[in-house]
């Protein structure tokens, strides 16, 4: 989880990723940032995030992104 928060803070600083739960719905992360995030996650966690998983429910908080990574790792 800490690695993920580091990535998020590097890509888009100034957001409290521990508490924010509307990263997509609140328009904190735009499409370009999401692409950068996916690229970093795929390198760091050795998973492949398919386009169909890019939905607000998977990206609205750091915890949800982390859960998605865990789910994809277990698949």
């Amino acid at each position: 989880m800490n690695e993920l928060i580091d990535i998020l803070e590097e890509l888009k600083p100034g957001i409290n990723y521990e508490t924010t739960e509307n990263l997509i719905d609140g328009r904190y992360l735009d499409s370009l940032t999401i692409l950068s995030l996916i690229s970093e996650i795929e390198d760091e966690f050795d998973v492949e995030i398919p386009a169909v998983e890019i939905i607000p429910n998977n990206f609205n908080s750091a915890e949800k992104i982390y859960n998605l990574i865990q789910k994809l790792k277990n698949e």
């Binding site: 499409s31 370009l32 999401i34 692409l35 950068s36 690229s39 386009a51």
Partner: peptide, 26 residues
């Protein structure tokens, strides 16, 4: 998202990433 995460674009992405880094490849 489907185009930017498609296999051919990902291939291009990884090549560009090696040469110019993540920002340019994205």
């Amino acid at each position: 998202f489907p185009v930017s995460l498609s296999k051919p674009v990902k291939k291009i992405n990884s090549k560009v990433k090696k040469m110019f880094g993540r920002k340019v490849s994205t």
